[in-house]
């Protein structure tokens, strides 16, 4: 297993209204190719900031992100982001056109296959076969996220960056999405970095869990549970408690109140 991503010492400070707010501070970790890694922590702990730095959307104050030995300076299709919002598909294009537009924009159209066929291939992978002709407004929330993932896969990214992608969905849809994401991950072998504040979601999906306390990486834990993850498995409970313990420790309600970087943090737990 080779290292695909190296995050070293990144610090991001936001300035708003003359006040400096620390997004993340001196965070370092690396990710091996093909792994499913979750970043977990309460709202406002900087986990989305990390993802946005990897994606190249944010200018960092210090530190750097290296993708396969090359420094990340701007956004690019080799690291594709899936957002929580249900408005990330282009509403003026059908689902198929969204995918074809993405492939053409990055110049990755497979030869010997029509773009429409290739789009259908990715739609099939996310369980949305036959929906290519639909406009985004005709899809449910879960279907929109599936279509966004299909579009992301179509540009053949090295890493899929998922920022609470199912946070806007109900519990039933989420379970279905978890199965789909795992299937996609197994079939494509893509590396996934998945941000969530849901401990069970992190355990169900990932090989490794990075737990964040405000602005800092608190713990880096390997998931010992065999796949598929069974919530009835005796060690599931103990692993869950271990992770939640890590996060509880990081978040004493009193200390959160003083934490400028996590104004909503007390509400999260």
């Amino acid at each position: 297993m080779s290292t695909i991503l190296n995050v070293s010492g990144i610090t991001k400070i936001y300035e708003s209204g003359g006040k400096k707010v620390i997004g993340v501070e001196k965070v370092s970790f690396s990710v091996e190719e093909g792994k499913f890694v979750s970043i977990i922590g309460p709202s406002g702990c900087g986990k989305s900031t990390i993802l946005r730095c990897i994606a190249g959307f944010e200018k960092m104050n210090c530190g750097q992100v290296m993708l396969e030995g090359e420094k990340v300076t701007k956004p690019g299709p080799d690291r594709f982001m899936i957002f929580q919002g249900l408005d990330q598909l282009f509403p003026w294009l059908t689902v198929e056109e969204n995918i074809v537009f993405a492939m053409k924009s990055v110049g990755k159209v497979t030869k010997g296959m029509s773009p429409a066929e290739e789009a259908e291939h990715y739609l099939d992978l996310v369980g949305l076969s036959g929906y290519g002709g639909y406009y985004p407004y005709q899809l449910s929330g879960g279907m929109k996220q599936r279509a966004s993932i299909a579009r992301a896969l179509s540009v053949k990214p090295k890493i899929l960056l998922m920022d609470e992608p199912f946070g806007s969905l109900d519990a039933f849809s989420r379970r279905a999405m978890h199965h789909m994401v795992l299937k996609v991950w197994e079939k494509t072998g893509v590396t996934v970095i998945f941000v969530t504040h849901d401990i069970e979601e992190a355990i169900d999906l990932s090989d490794r869990i990075l737990a964040f306390s405000p602005a800092r990486l608190k713990a880096d834990v390997t998931n010992p549970l065999p796949r598929p993850r069974e919530r009835s498995h005796p060690s599931y409970r103990s692993f869950f408690l271990k992770i939640s313990g890590l996060l509880e420790g990081a978040f004493k309600p009193d200390s959160d109140l003083k934490s400028a970087s996590a104004p909503e943090a007390t509400l999260a737990f």
Partner: peptide
């Protein structure tokens, strides 16, 4: 949508 565009290069 703007960031998806940027993500596509």
């Amino acid at each position: 949508q703007l960031e998806v565009g940027k993500n596509l290069g």
